[in-house]
Design a protein around this nucleic acid. Structure first.
Lengths: 196, 196
DNA sequence: TGTACATCAGTGAACGCGCGTTCACTGATGTAC
DNA sequence: TGTACATCAGTGAACGCGCGTTCACTGATGTAC
């Protein structure tokens, strides 16, 4: 076996990052311990520091990875142009997305904790969010993407907040109605004229 | 002094709840320890269990109190009718509200942690949110408030998510532009026709 | 009014536990001769 | 090809610390006579 190659170590590192991303979304940043994060990857706590300088650094890396994955797997895969945005919105507000937090959107799962996090984590998040919204903007305004940047950003915030709220409510029916309303609001936002 | 009266103990309890609410918003639920929460109220950790059965119970109580306070101090104080909603929206998306988390909105500060919390906390949150949105709905549709309930709920989710996002971004200018866009989106939502 | 006792808000040390982090060690793999 | 050694991913116990929770105790206040 190629156990002592760069490739092997890189694969292991990637596995830690991916499983940590899922755990962080499920239990939160403060709610996920290093030993648990390593166990998720099939390793013991001791070897953690052969991969990351600190928990903080793993968190920042995992957040970046989650945002990248969200872009690669969901946003970039959608149909071209505005039709793709509609797809994304309908996926986002589906009960499945809401009910499988660890497979779902990192924005909705972690946004208020990221706002309280250290600068490297906030920076990693910001970089990832910009990739997402630049893709949104290119779909919204193909001829002048920068003009749709802030609107795209507001769409992201609105989607994340609505999903969080649907997850927090104990009234399931109301939570489901909120998802449907979220779709209507998001589609309306796409069509809204900019009146600065 | 009236140290051993019901009133004294009730006042102390209320002080613990209020200071805990601020601390929870600043440091998060998992990020706030019992000793710290008590120290904020000028007490030591030992007496905590004379007031609450568990940390969990304080969290649920503090969340309920924060939601009640948000309604009493902000929403109920606003001008009557739709004009009041505009006031609330402009306050909500002000840089001051964003930058003073412990004085600000509990939804934006805690929503994703509440979604992961125990049932009593989620229930306390849900009850508080319903009071807020019923007030919104009465302003939006005085003649038939229930018809505006889900729309009001979506307004709450959209506001909280947008504020969280503005707090998380490291790019201050973009964060400020997002707040302005948030105002435009929220006002547009007020005027949107319901097309179910 | 003065004294003895009961009440009880609050203290502070301690419990077992899991946290983030460190480190001496293991043992499978790779390299040198 | 076989043997001796070097490398290094991974282990697991331990560090000091803060967590949520418990409890014996203190001492100021209230009550009884």
């Amino acid at each position: 076996m190629s156990r002592y190659t760069k490739e092997h170590k890189q694969e292991t590192r990637q596995r830690i990052i991916a499983t940590a991303g899922r755990r962080l979304k499920r239990n939160g940043i403060d709610g996920s311990g290093v030993a648990t994060l390593m166990k998720d990857a099939g390793l013991t706590n001791g070897t953690f520091y052969a991969y990351f300088a600190s928990k903080d650094q793993l968190v920042a890396t995992a957040v970046a990875d989650q945002m990248r994955a969200q872009h690669a797997n969901i946003v970039a895969q959608a149909a071209p142009g505005r039709a793709g945005l509609e797809q994304i919105i309908r996926w986002y507000f589906s009960p499945e997305q809401r009910d499988t937090i660890e497979d779902g959107c990192p924005n909705a799962a972690l946004l208020d904790e990221i706002a309280r996090a250290t600068d490297p984590t906030r920076q990693a998040y910001t970089d990832g969010a910009l990739v997402l919204i630049d893709d949104f903007a290119a779909r919204l305004a193909p001829l002048d993407p920068p003009s749709a940047r802030v609107k795209s950003l507001s769409l992201l915030g609105m989607m994340a907040g609505t999903l969080q709220l649907s997850r927090a409510l104990t009234d399931r029916q109301l939570a489901d109605e909120l998802l449907e309303q979220g779709i209507r609001n998001a589609l309306a936002l796409l069509d809204a004229e900019q009146h600065n």
